[in-house]
Design a protein around this nucleic acid. Sequence first.
RNA 1: GCCGAAGUGGCGGAACUGGCAGACGCGCCAGACUCAAAAUCUGGUGUCCGCAAGGACGUGUGGGUUCGAGUCCCACCUUCGGCACCA
Length: 867
Amino acid sequence: MFSSRASAHLVQESVVEAKTIREVYDFTLIERKWQAEWENARAFAAHDFTEGKEPYYLLEMFPYPSGYMHMGHMRNYTLGDVMARLNWKKGRSVLHPIGFDSFGLPAEQAAIDRGVDPREWNEECIENIIRQMKMMGFSYDWDRIVVTSRPDYYKWTQWLFIKFHEMGLVYRKEMPVNWCEEHGVLANDEAQEGKCWRCGRIVTQRKLEQWYIKTTAYADELLDGLNELENWPERVLTMQKNWIGKSEGTRVSFDLPAIGEKIDVFTTRIDTLYGVTFLVFAPEHPFVARIMEIVDDEKRAEIMAFIAETAKVDVIERTAEGREKKGLSLGVDCVHPLTGESVKLFIADYVLMDYGTGAVMAVPAHDSRDYLFAKKYNLPIKWVIRPVEGEWTEDDAFTGYGIMMNSDKYDGLSSEDGIDELSRDLESAGLGGFETQYRLKDWTASRQRYWGCPIPMVYCEKCGHVPEKLENLPVLLPPPEKVDMEKRDRGSPLAYVDEFVECVCPKCGARARRETDTMTTFLDSAWYFLRYCDPKNEAEIAGRDVVNHWMPVDCYIGGIEHAVGHLMYARFITRVLNKAGVLDFAEPFDVLFTQGMIYKDGAKMSKSLGNTVSPDDMVEDYGADTARLFSLFAGPPERDLEWQDEGVQGCHRFLKRLWRMFAEFWNARERIKELSASISHAEPELVAEIRRMEHTTIKGVTEDIGRMQFNTAIAKMMELVNFLAPILANEIAPAAVKTVSGDTSDAGEIKPVIAAFESALKTLSGLLSPFTPHIAEEIWEALGGVGFVMHAPWPAHDESLIATDTIEIGVVINGKPRARAIVPADADEASVKEIVFADETIAKWIEGKEIKKFIYVPGRIANIVAK
RNA sequence: GCCGAAGUGGCGGAACUGGCAGACGCGCCAGACUCAAAAUCUGGUGUCCGCAAGGACGUGUGGGUUCGAGUCCCACCUUCGGCACCA
C-alpha cells in the first residue's frame, strides 16, 4: 500500500489531469479528501429562514459521551445521515444537529474511581466521538453542538425549572426511597432483590423530601395528544398509553366509626358495590397508624409485625407475579354506605399506596384477587352480578360485565347502566361519584448527585423555598476539587460544600441555604432539540421565530428504549412551553422512527459484554462508506440485526467493483475520446437498455427510500452495477483497445453507448451519495458534476424510457406455473389468450381438457383453469 | 395473564395494494488466472426423485376463503418486546 500522502498526490493528479485513473479503490484517500472538502466549504451548515426552501429538521437522539462509540451506536447516526443527505438533495433547507447528554453517573463514577475531573472526562470523550463521527462522514452542522453539562446550556435547564415553578408545576414531597449506605439513593432497577447493584448491600427504605414535577397535571393532554401523532410507531403509542394508564371509575366512601373517619376507595366496578364483603388497606395507609392507637396490645403487635414484614420486601418483589396474597385483619369494621352492614377491614401487601386511594373495596365474587384472599381467610362471598347468558360456577370469581342482582333497587340493570346510576346516586348522596385515575406519577426531579444540573432553588427560613433570580443564572456547579463525591449522608455531596450552600435569599436578602440536589438528566435531554434551533442565544432559551421556523422536528430517530421515559418528558415540556406561550406547537416530533439494535454473537452489542465492533477498525480496514453501507444493507432499519463480518466484506467488495468499473470506464472513454472522429450511427438497442435500467433504478430506489427501505434500495443499485459491468467488459473496453491500436471502426458505434453508460454512472453516484457519500463525490467530480453531489438534485426518472413494447409473463395452469409467454405490453385479455393458446408447451398441458376459465393479470401472469 | 411485533433456503434478508416465492448479499461447489496462496473473474446453488428432459414438494402448525394465499379469515405453536396484584 502507498502511504496516504504519496497516493493522495497520485490520485489527485490522475483524476484531474492525467489520462488514467487507478483501479485500486483507495478509500482512505477518497474519504479524507472529501471530509476536508466538506469542512472547508461548510457544506453541512444549516441556514435559518432560507428563502424558497422548505425547512427540514432531522434529529437523532443525542449520545451520552462515554469514551467511544461502537457500530451499534453508529447505525442510528448513519440512518439519520442518510435521511439528512437525502433531504439536502431534495432541495430542503436541512437542520441536522448533534450534541451530548453529558451530565450523569458515568462521569461521576469515573471521577470517584479514577479521580479524574468529570468535566475533562466529558470533554475528552466528546472530542473523541466527534472525531469518530467526522470519520464516518456524518453531515452535522458542527457549529450547533450542544452539551448539556456546559453552563451556557444548563442555565436554560434551570430557567425551565423556574418557569415550571412559576406555573405551579413543581412541589416538594416526602417519599420513601431505596437507600444504600455506600451509594445513597438507588433507582428501583439499581436495587434488584433488595440489594445494591454495585456493592450488594441490603437496601433499606428511607424517607426523603424531594422536588417533583406535576406531569400528572398534563396526563389527559399527553394522552389525547397521542391521537395527533399519526407518524409514530403504533407500539410506542401503545406503550405511552399504558404508561399514562387512564382509568375511569367511581369514588365511594365507607364510614370507619372506630376512628371517626371516612375511607375513600376507587373502583372501576361500582356495579359490584353490593358484593363488598371486606375492605383492604395498603400497609402504608395513614389510617393504619390511627387504628393501632385504639386496638389492644396484642393486635397492635400483630399489625406492627405485618408492616415490618412488608417493608422488608422491596417494591419489585412485592408486585411480583403469582405472589401469595398475605393480609391481616385490623380488628375493626367499617360501614357499607348503602346497606349499612358491617364490613371487616384488612391490610394486605397486594394493595399499593401510590395507586388510587391506597384502599380498595373487596368484592370476592367478582374480582380474582379478592376471591383468592377471601378463600384464604375464609371470608364471605356475595354474588351480585350474573352473566347475561348462561350459568356461572362458584369455583371462581366472575369478573365480566353482566346483570346486577342482590343489589336492592338496582337489580336487573346491566353493569354499564349500574355503574352510571350508582355513581350518580352516590354523588347526590354525597358519598362519592365519578373519578378518573392515572397510573402516571409525578416526575421526581431531584437526584442526590454531584454531576448534574443544580436545581436553582433557595431555602430561606422566612420565605421558604424561593427560586433563584433569573439574572443570577446559571447557578454554577462548584468545581470537582471542592467536592467529596462519596459523601452522601446528607443526601447530595453538594450539601457539604459550604461556599455552594451558603447564599442569600433572592426575595428578602437574608442568609439562606441553596438546594443541593441536582436535576435528573432526563430533564436536560427533554428540551435539547429546542436549543439546536438557536444554540448561541444568550438572552433566551431559543429565539421564538427561529424555533417556530424549524420545529417541530420532521423526523426523530432513536432507540425504542426511550419509548416512554424520554419521549414522554419531551412531549410534556413542549406542551408546557406551548401553554406558557413560548412555543407555537404542542408536539415536538412529527415523525418518530425507532431503529433496531445491533447484535453480535447473539447478544446486544455493548461495551460490558465485550462484543463491540469499533468504527475506528472498520474505517481503517474497509473505509467509512463500507461501514455505512453494511449497517444499512444488512436489514430493514426498524429491525434488529446481527453483525456479520462476512457481510461487511460483501459490501466492501461491491464498492471495490464499483470503483474498478468506474476507473476502467473512465480510462476507456479517454482513449476513445481522443482518437476517434465523431461518426454518427443509428443508436444501438444497447443504449435504450442502459437508459431503461438507469431509470428503472432511479424509480425503484426513490420508492424504497420513501418507505425507508434502505436495504432494498441498495440491492437495486447493486443490480445496476451488475448490469453495467459486463457492458463495459464486453463492449466498451474492447472498442477502446481497438481504438488504441489504431482501428477506429467501432468508435462511432460505441460513442452513444459510452454516453449512456456515463449518464448511468453519474446517476448512480447521485443515488448512492446519501449512503456512501465519499465515493459518490469522487465519481461525481470525475464525471464533471457541478458542486457537491450531496447538494445536487436527486435524480428524476422518465417513465417513457422504462416502458418496453413486449413483456414476458408467466402462464399458470390449474395453479401451477407451467410456461412463459411473450406478449405486447398493452395487450388485452383476449389477445393474450390467443397468444397463450398458440403456444406448444401450453397446448400440451391443456390437451383434451375443457377450458373453464382464463384470467390475465396485466404484466404479471396468465392463469388457465382447465378440467 | 394482558397488549404488541415477528416466524420464508445453510445464513442476513426480498416479494408495495392477493398474481411467476427466494431479489440483493453472505456462505458453499466447480472452473479461470497463479509455482502457490490471497485478491479478482466466470458459472452453479430451496428440498427430494431423475443421467437428462422433466416432475413432486416447499414461506411455524392445522383448517378455511379464492381461478390463484408468504400475503386475507379462524384456531394453535414458538420467539422477541412492553405492561403486569392498577382496584
